[in-house]
Design a protein around this nucleic acid. Structure first.
Length: 199
DNA sequence: TGTATGATTAAT
DNA sequence: TTAATCATACAA
């Protein structure tokens, strides 16, 4: 029995998957074999029909992966400087994905830690987490499974239990950094987590 | 071919 | 509030 999240699990409405990804773990294996792990603490949902969604108008070279079947990564460059990682959800041909906005890292090699940088803030933001996990467009379209160097693991039973008994506060708000679709409450984050990008 | 613009970030 | 920085989308 594996705790690795499958394409099947992601093949649902992005509005269900996005909050369900909170508490799950994103795992990255670098080219040198090193493994970095972080708990997902902040997400946003994007899907067809939503003016803020890259796939709102039509399928293009850039947004093509948003239209793919669930279970692949959609990675794009923003502002010519940063990358953003999305988890593609729902059925093929329907554009939808979860933007991973922040991670609470489990650990991080001391020698890589930039001076004066607070550990909790290392992956606090969509561009920052891609930097730390060395995620760029080479991972666009990759299947989310261990063999590809990037995958997801389900919530631990303990975390799920805590969540079920209401011990974990989840906040739902409007999305950040967009000019359209600002009325939709499609952002979720762990209320008490120090790694959340912004409140 | 030319140009405006980001699902951001860190610094002022 | 602004600069950094460039692939993409869309107009022409």
């Amino acid at each position: 029995m594996s705790n690795i999240i499958s394409s099947d699990w992601l093949n649902r409405s992005v509005l269900e998957v996005a909050p369900d990804l909170l508490g799950c773990t994103l795992v990255r294996q670098l080219a040198d074999g090193q493994i970095l792990r972080g708990q997902i603490v902040e997400v946003e949902a994007y899907q067809a029909g939503d003016p803020a969604c890259h796939g709102y108008r039509k399928k293009t070279d850039r947004n093509a992966m948003m239209f793919s079947a669930a279970g692949v990564a959609y990675v794009y460059l923003i502002y010519g400087l940063y990358h953003c990682l999305n988890i593609v959800t729902d059925r093929e041909a329907f554009a939808s994905a979860v933007l991973i906005r922040a991670l609470q890292l489990e650990s991080y090699p001391t020698e890589r830690l930039p001076p004066k940088q607070k550990f909790d803030r290392l992956a606090a933001g969509p561009g920052k987490l891609c930097q730390v996990l060395e995620i760029d467009r080479r991972l666009n379209g990759c299947q989310l499974e261990p063999g590809q160097g990037l995958w997801l693991e389900a919530r631990s039973p303990q975390w799920q239990q805590d969540c079920d008994r209401g011990a974990i506060a989840i906040t739902q708000t409007s999305r950040i950094g967009i000019t359209q679709g600002v009325d939709l409450l499609w952002r979720w984050y762990l209320q008490d987590c120090a790694a959340v990008s912004r409140r």
